[in-house]
Design a protein around this nucleic acid. Structure first.
Lengths: 337, 337
DNA sequence: ATGAAAGCGCTAACAT
DNA sequence: ATGTTAGCGCTTTCAT
């Protein structure tokens, strides 16, 4: 069943077209393409001429199939956020060592989220999902394709994941503040109903409440602030509460970026830190050290490393056990408390 | 010429193996793999059974070839550095819109550099090189494969590139300081002989010198500091000079991260900013705004966007003109000057 | 040195 | 509903 073809076909030229035009075999074209020494000067230039004439360019996909190249996909929401970047770095490191390519998919909209978990997931040999809580449907979809997947910074009962004990982290931060003598402690975190279903912040708040309760401190819901994740929003929220009649003497922010927003607000209001306002963050991104921010450290980079490790195990050895890897937490005291 | 095959072959099972075991055609297997509705319950489960039994997993590479998926490679040194991340974000944005996948290659060692510009470059349909100055040999190699390439934040006469006028940027920063009344101005940048051949810092220093000269200020080489790029190193260097008998009253740092290091040093020494020490950075990363750092802004994100745009033009329309796209610069005055 | 041909493993059009 | 077959475009023996 011969398909009709226009006389001057516009389809992209293949290695075969080049071969034909140069009057050689495809093998020879492939050789010059790959710089094999075993091609005569003359043939070589004939081939190059044909390549030029046709505007030929080799298909990476075809080459990859032939060569058996493999790639891992990393999907992450807002991958420019420092914590995500550090995790990706860990993934990259492990993958490079194993000879896998890393395909990055940034999700910032619901639509992108769908592509990432749908089409994109099928274009790679394995998937690492960072900081994006998956719905049961999404997980089911991935399992149906039985695509190897590992989760980093989010958990799911049916998928291997590497996480931290967020609640415990919230306790750690709050207890530190309590030990410093604070009684009026604010919490600032992500809005409970965010577009991506982030939950870490909520768990950290739970830890915050646990700690207060354990120490007999009544909690005051006016002191619990929620906003769209990120620095700017945090600053705005903090500004309001710090400027109120009964401001907290300390604030625990659910992430370092939010803590930095709080610091900005304090600065704008002329509040001395830590004397007039103590601040604790979460994550320990590089900037936390630079700013002297007291924070709860989680091993961001290692988390990526371990996630990649788990995924490789699944991809290469078919190991599909749904382990939960729990990373350690530590309070790092610096100059904001 | 039938090749011998072990009875219990260990080669990874293909869709064909599954079809055979399930007693169906490959088309049917493909259908269940892709969730086509037109497959009877029974056949479906037979196929799933075979898949399970063989431990079959579909090859992403084969699928991509068949489907004509395309990918762009991004190679960047130390991609966790904030400025690089923002550029990558711009690239990602543009690529996503065009339906290309983004393959990320982080280079932190000479060996990785070689892989990135060699094998990796051939695994993608186009390459964006960020902040990594290429040697003529490297460029020649890329051109031989005639791989579409565009450079971002580095230039080369034979390749399209999007850059800024670093020298002018250095002048801008320095002139700002001079206008503020400073005469004893230090410069802090990357070591001139760094492993990756970074040159932006040197150009910015040239601008610094130009400005001094233009205003009749003698330059003092004791005030020119060079170290391995990054915050920590900058802090150490700044600490020394600020603690010396004749410290500068202002420092122009070749990047915001280095400027932050300077700020840390000032803080450690109890120097009030900007009264006792003025600081200007370069880049305008997000943290610069948060810290109130005066800096020379370059459009990091747009730079990635434009680079991707140029590359797509090369990949899709074969447009290989070696344009130079110059991005605008602006001094953003904040609270450190 | 180089041509011919056999994969690489999948998707999709076609036929039944 | 499902089997068959023709690509997808390259790399790599194997022969010559």
């Amino acid at each position: 069943m011969e398909r009709l073809r226009a006389p001057h076909s516009r389809r992209t030229p293949t290695i075969r077209d080049v071969a034909r035009l140069a009057g050689v075999g495809v093998g020879t074209v492939s050789r010059v393409l790959n710089g094999s020494p075993a091609v005569s000067e003359e043939t070589q230039s004939r081939v190059r001429g044909a390549i030029e004439a046709l505007g030929y360019r080799r298909s990476a996909a075809a080459r990859n199939l032939s060569l058996g190249t493999r790639a891992i996909g990393v999907v992450a929401p807002f991958f420019t956020s420092p914590s995500v970047v550090e995790r990706v770095r860990g993934v990259s490191e492990r993958l490079a060592g194993a000879g896998y390519d890393l395909m990055l998919f940034d999700v910032e909209t619901p639509k992108q989220r769908r592509s990432a978990l749908g089409d994109f997931a099928r274009r790679v040999d394995g998937l690492i999902v960072i900081s994006l809580p998956l719905s049961d449907d999404e997980v089911a979809g991935l399992r149906r394709d039985d695509q190897p997947v590992v989760l980093v910074d989010v958990s799911h009962p049916e998928l291997p994941h590497v996480v931290i004990d967020n609640t415990r982290g919230g306790e750690l931060a709050t207890e530190h503040l309590i030990a410093k003598g604070h009684r009026r402690i604010g919490f600032l975190g992500d809005s409970t109903t965010n577009a991506f279903g982030f939950t870490s912040s909520e768990l950290r708040r739970r830890g915050y409440r646990n700690a207060l309760e354990r120490h007999g401190i009544a909690r005051d819901s006016d002191l619990e602030l929620h906003g769209r994740f990120g620095r700017a929003e945090a600053r705005a929220l903090a500004h309001v509460i710090l400027d109120s009649p009964e401001p907290p003497s300390a604030i625990f922010a659910a992430s370092d970026m939010q803590a930095i927003g709080v610091l900005e607000a304090a600065d704008a209001l002329g509040l001395r830190v830590p004397d007039e306002l103590a601040v604790v963050g979460f994550d320990d991104i590089e900037m936390a050290a630079a700013l002297g921010l007291t924070t709860v450290r989680q091993p961001l980079h290692d988390t990526g490393l371990h996630g990649a490790e788990l995924l490789l195990r699944a991809v290469e050895r078919g190991d599909r056990r749904t382990v939960e890897e729990l990373e350690p937490l530590a309070l790092v005291e610096r100059r904001t408390t």
